[in-house]
């Protein structure tokens, strides 16, 4: 009996807490509350697509293997940082021929460049739950400044999830094979789940 009363009280207190925080933060979850250090979980997904002339289809794929982490600075969001690594060898696409082509010297050249990396250099908050991240993207031995748009989706005490979107021009990395049949722009659509360290 005492146990039930006790948990009922706890639940009420907890619900009241949720109401008060969500009222304070308006609708969207606020980045500052999620301060901490995270590891990118393997349940995340890193997808990309490349449009083709005349519309329809195009190339769509994802990376099965990746790693990385990020730190959200509670005091100053702009001092947060991200770094991630993709392994092009793990690229998945509609069929084997496409995967082999993506791994080949024509695109990622996975035999000579095992990773694609991103290291943020600047984070700018653009709304209560959105930010842009600028950083150095390295692929095929070439490093360039790129920008991604981040939207906070959800978080709890142990994990946090974002969508990260970016349009990357591939020609500067020496990956312009197939243009103009296939767009020069690769659309990245990532769903990143961070596990608090």
């Amino acid at each position: 009996m005492t146990v039930t009363i006790n948990s009922a009280v706890k639940a009420t207190v907890y619900i009241a807490f949720i109401f008060s925080t969500s009222a304070a933060n308006a609708q969207a979850p606020a980045l500052a509350d999620a301060a901490g250090s995270y590891r990118i979980a393997s349940s995340s997904s890193i997808r990309f697509s490349v449009g083709q002339v005349g519309g329809g289809g195009g190339i769509a794929g994802r990376f099965a293997k990746f790693s990385g982490g990020f730190r959200i600075d509670g005091g100053n969001i702009e001092r947060s940082s991200v770094e991630f690594t993709l392994y092009p060898e793990s690229v998945r696409a509609s069929e084997r021929r496409v995967e082999d082509f993506l791994r080949s010297s024509a695109v990622f050249d996975a035999a000579n460049f095992q990773t694609v990396t991103f290291r943020s250099t600047r984070v700018r908050q653009t709304g209560p739950a959105t930010a842009t991240i600028e950083g150095a993207l390295t692929a095929r031995g070439k490093t360039r400044k790129e920008r991604f748009a981040v939207t906070l989706i959800d978080w709890n005490r142990r994990s946090i999830s974002f969508t990260i979107r970016g349009s990357i021009r591939r020609s500067p990395y020496g990956m312009d094979v197939g243009t103009p049949i296939y767009s020069n722009v690769v659309e990245f659509d990532m769903r990143i789940i961070g596990q608090r360290r």
Binding site: Q52, V53, G54, S94, I181
Partner: peptide, 16 residues
């Protein structure tokens, strides 16, 4: 072909 690669005639017009 399952690759569905468009035929872009001399990079000018798409032939269906």
């Amino acid at each position: 072909s399952t690759l569905n690669i468009p035929s872009f005639f001399f990079n000018m017009i798409v032939i269906p």
